[in-house]
């Protein structure tokens, strides 16, 4: 039991929280940066290689298109269907291979990213599918290449949806980053477990909750504002 009346309790709490918040933001930030790129790429691949998509026949072969699409679908489904806590454990050997260590603040980025990419890829897929088919047709009529269609028509038109989906993904990853704390991933989850659970400090638990809620709120408000600003409908 920690005595909250002990001298230095509050400054110590503050320092602990500050450090843990920094770790969480770092993990989530790096994860989301990688996810933005790879999730966008994977989600786009899902849409363009689908039947009737603009890359239905990569290299002129419909078989290649079907295979790429099926593999991508499987990867995304697999990533989506494994519970995070199991994914995290299953990835320990892989993380060790990649970074030399399976535990720690940075090492936790690996399972977080592996969970976030399929999550975001699916949202990207949905957002891109909502782009009006007529716009793609207009692009074709202007003689756009496939790259131009993706980069100048489909993705720009989906931006508000992509931002909202990104916000949702960030919130999930903040959530997962707390779980990572349980296996030595640091961050706010680590504080909750070490002080709150093992040493029964309610104040620590409450403080962690407040910080997490604040992060999620800020992410959601900023995301919604940005999405609205980018939407000109």
């Amino acid at each position: 039991m920690i005595d909250s009346n002990a001298p230095g309790f509050w400054p110590q709490l503050f320092d602990t929280l500050l450090k843990a918040t920094g770790e969480t933001l770092y993990q989530v930030g790096v994860t989301m940066l990688i996810t933005l790129i790879l999730g966008l790429a994977l989600g786009t691949l899902l849409v363009v290689t689908d039947r009737g998509g603009i890359l239905e026949r990569p290299f002129g072969s419909i078989v290649a298109g079907r295979i790429i699409n099926a593999v991508t679908q499987t990867v995304v489904n697999l990533g989506r269907s494994i519970p995070f806590i199991i994914l995290m454990i299953a990835l320990i050997p892989f993380t060790r291979l990649l970074l030399g260590s399976a535990f720690g603040v940075t090492a936790a980025i690996v399972p977080l990213t592996v969970a976030a990419i399929p999550f975001y890829a699916r949202i990207v897929e949905i957002s891109l599918r909502e782009v009006n088919e007529g716009l793609v047709e207009a692009g074709h009529s202007l003689g756009a290449t496939r790259w131009q269609l993706v980069l100048k028509v489909i993705i720009p038109e989906a931006v508000p949806g992509l931002i909202r989906g990104f916000t949702t993904t960030v919130v999930s990853i903040v959530n997962y980053s707390a779980i990572v704390g349980a296996i030595g991933g640091g961050g706010l989850g680590d504080v909750a477990i070490r002080y709150g659970h093992q040493r029964y400090s309610v104040i620590h638990i409450v403080a962690v909750i407040i910080v997490l809620v604040a992060i999620v709120q800020i992410v959601q408000v900023v995301g919604a504002r940005l999405a609205n600003r980018m939407s000109h409908r």
């Binding site: 009006n132 038109e157 409908r233």
Partner: peptide, 9 residues
Amino acid sequence: FQQFNLLDS
């Protein structure tokens, strides 16, 4: 086109 097909963005 009938539905104009302009980019909202």
